[in-house]
Amino acid sequence: MFNYVPEMFRAETAETEEEGDKWYDDHTAGRRPPELLPRDEVARAINTEVKAGRGSPHGGVFLDIASRRTPEYIRRRLPSMYHQFMELAGVDITRESMEIGPTCHYIMGGVQVIADSAATAVPGLFAAGEAAGGLHGANRLGGNSLSDLVVFGRRAGMGAAEYIEAGDVATSFNMEEAEAAVKGALDPLNREEGENPYTIQHDLQEMMQALVGIIRTGPELEEAKDKLDEFTERVKNISVKGARAYNPGWNLATDLPSMLTVSRSTALAASLRKESRGGHTREDYPNPDPEFAKFNFALSSDGGNWDSPISAAQSPLLPLPDELKALLEEAH
């Protein structure tokens, strides 16, 4: 069960080489402290504790390193954490425990790309990193985001260069579409009366956290989908004041349609995935279903606009390339 835990963490807590080997070879005999379980398991465990009324004063749990490591070690190995807790909360983590809670950290889903070139379905558009989906499966491992950026950022750059060299680049575009996009972006500035974008963003965050959060259920996801339709109407009625130069309110107004696209996609895919896997936990389907392991949900916009209906199709997972399969077999 623990063979996917990165080497550095294994070295951090195993006190003897035998203990490390034991974890590695016999996954049922592991003596792993809960904070080193995968992120989704830790988040669920915290959620369960808090719901059961055993949470800390601010609705989280306590994490302690002071009892396990010396102050010098903590300051040397966790300098940012030491500094931030000290300055922002007045908590000395070399002496006392930290109050922690799960938060939205990373989106495993994203734009579907061709792995070799990072090309998307839109000609000339390339995506890498957290914007792209599929690389990390259902649960990203610590540290892999950086390697993702380095490897696939390079591929995206090379993919874009090849695309240009191949000469397939569009040399014209639809002026009407461009004008409509400009008008859409400027609408919030021109609208005399309307809603504050910050209010909508805040409400959207609260709703998504409550209904599409760590633990999901079918009825709540359906409720979220209905609410997202209401948000779509609200976003069409944003009004911001000020000019175009460095105007955060206006920037948020132009970001909100994309936030809704992502929220609607997340809610739809989560409602279709009737299983629990990695970062996605369904209370009504608590176990992984092997059938669902065979495909991703690929969502597309029917119409291409941010408020167009979204449809879902099953996109089969590609078979593991032989060289990777060989590497994995070698490791076992």
Binding site: H83, N196, P248
Partner: peptide, 27 residues
């Protein structure tokens, strides 16, 4: 922190108040 207050001013009174920020963690 001061940035929290600036964000609250943006959200309630002055949505066009420009400030640069990213991590909110001193990094």
């Amino acid at each position: 922190v001061v940035l929290d207050i600036i964000h609250r001013i943006q959200a309630t009174e002055a949505p066009d108040l420009a400030c640069r920020w990213n991590c909110k963690a001193g990094k």
